[in-house]
Design a protein around this nucleic acid. Structure first.
Length: 430
RNA sequence: GGGGGUUUGUCCGAGUGGUUAAAGGAGACGGACUGUAAAUCCGUUCGCUAUGCGUACACAGGUUCGAAUCCUGUAGCCCCCA
């Protein structure tokens, strides 16, 4: 994709929320390859769906021939960005921060190309901040920040008006981020910073500082936040964030998250997060409108995202699991198949001997599997018809499980409700 | 420091000394319908060795055949006076 198309594409996708001096920015991008940076807060050791917009933004620029810098905020993460936060952040320990920086950095490699002429860079602002003394920083940087202007920033104002207030530490946050921009401009000739719309204040602070300290014009570009049609942040379930790390959120869960995206949100997700082209987008939009039941857009979105994040193997196993889990009875499977399909489903082991003789009471099995909290709940569930053995509904409370109920050599599949599965493996020791 | 009020299940909120495991609502969890959706409808929502039993209405004790309901003390919250 050429630069000219890049801007057009971003606009079409609705990814441009605000920019500074758009005409000039556009000219700059077309004159020669530029360097663009986005900062990431290392609040956890993995990125989550909420970060994907920004990661994709860098990727889009890279594909148009520009050099992306993913800045992991080892230093700024120690302070905490007050933007969009209603309360003071708890500070992370340096060790925790370091392991988060490592984790996030590793994930970046999956989305950006790190070699070649427009190879991405992964930088940590702790590297240039750690040796910067407080006195020097105040003289070089602080001097250029009129408190009046700082007070005017939305992130500061909203916090000052709220109960929670704002500590001096968080108040100072924008100086650090502003300095990052200046540093990157000076050392890496980076003149563009992008981010979510909540970063506008921080970005413009950096631009001001760049003008004062370097006499250079810097540029900012923000993307809208990824929210659902009813205004909540995307990428979260009741259980928490959808992580990119397969150990935190399995490929199957990840895939399912996108499959379940609301009709009202799905096209926006495709525009914001994927690289699906316009013609396909249009036909998916058309299909969602005329035949929403097919959920063609959701399936395509889920497939694209899962493949990007978890690769060909991840998408294959997610789809395989989906077809079994939402299919009919499970019979004559092998341990290997079930193990793969239910890789992320909680499983427990118990001794095979319980299956012999009388058999194992289903109520006990349910408790053992943690699908229910008490035997009362187990009985209730059976009465309500929400318990399934190998995907076949159990209606009789006195059912006893025997060898004949195994779905494969040693595994039996329990389910409660529509989507909650548990595996029980029977082992023979000695 | 003195006086008054309040404290119920996940949350909100009724509750007459006696079918009160506690009305009603929310939430949650199921089921039907559907598109693995939304809306709607229905059911469930303390535990157990389960047509019975045990715990439970801030906590401890008391009155009574019987208490979430009455009395006393302790604690939390709220209001008024100093």
């Amino acid at each position: 994709m050429t630069t000219k198309n890049l801007i057009e594409d971003l606009r079409w996708r609705g990814l441009i929320h605000q920019t500074t001096d758009e005409a000039e920015l556009s000219k700059l991008l077309q004159s020669e390859p530029q360097t663009i940076y986005i900062g990431f807060d290392p609040t956890a050791s993995s990125l989550h769906v909420g970060h994907l917009m920004q990661v994709m933004m860098l990727r889009r620029f890279q594909q148009a021939g520009h050099r992306p810098i993913a800045l992991v905020g080892g230093a700024t993460g120690m302070i905490g960005d007050p933007s969009g936060k209603s309360e003071e952040r708890n500070l992370l320990s340096p060790e925790q921060l370091q392991s988060n920086v490592d984790g996030v950095g590793k994930q970046m490699k999956q989305f950006l190309v790190f070699d070649g002429s427009s190879g991405a860079k992964l930088l940590n602002n702790f590297d240039w901040m750690q040796g910067y003394s407080y006195l020097e920083f105040l003289r070089d940087v602080g001097k250029n920040f009129p408190v009046g202007a700082m007070m005017g920033k939305e992130s500061v104002r909203s916090r000052l008006e709220s109960e929670a207030g704002l500590s001096y530490t968080e108040f100072s946050y924008m100086l650090l981020q502003a300095y990052d921009f200046v540093y990157l401009c000076r050392e890496h000739n980076c003149r563009i910073q992008a981010g979510g719309s909540d970063q506008w204040g921080n970005i413009t602070a950096g631009i001001d500082l760049g003008r004062r300290m370097l006499g250079k014009q810097l540029f900012g570009l923000t993307a809208p936040l990824l929210t659902t049609s009813d205004g909540r942040k995307m990428g979260k379930t009741e259980k928490g964030a959808i992580w990119l790390d397969p150990d935190r959120t399995s490929p199957y869960e990840f895939y399912q998250y996108w499959i379940n995206v609301d009709d009202a949100d799905v096209m926006r997700c495709i525009a914001y997060l994927t690289e699906i082209h316009r013609d396909e987008y249009d036909s998916l939009a058309e299909q969602t409108a005329s035949d929403p039941g097919r959920r063609g857009a959701q399936k395509r979105l889920a497939q694209w995202m899962t493949e990007l994040v978890h690769g060909a193997e991840g998408i294959a196993s997610a789809q395989r699991a989906t077809s079994i889990l939402f299919g009919g009875e499970i019979e004559k499977a092998t341990d290997a198949q079930l193990g793969q399909i239910f890789a992320d489903v909680p499983s427990v082991e118990t001794d095979r001997s319980v299956l012999s003789g009388e058999g194992w009471w289903i109520v006990e099995a349910l408790q053992k599997s943690s699908l229910v909290k008490s035997s009362s709940e187990a009985r209730r569930s059976i009465k309500e018809g929400s318990v399934y053995l190998n995907n076949r509904r159990v209606t009789d409370m006195d059912v006893r499980l025997t060898e004949a109920d195994l779905a494969s050599e040693t595994v039996l599949v329990l389910r409660r409700g529509k989507k909650k599965y548990a595996l029980i493996r029977f082992t023979t020791n000695r």
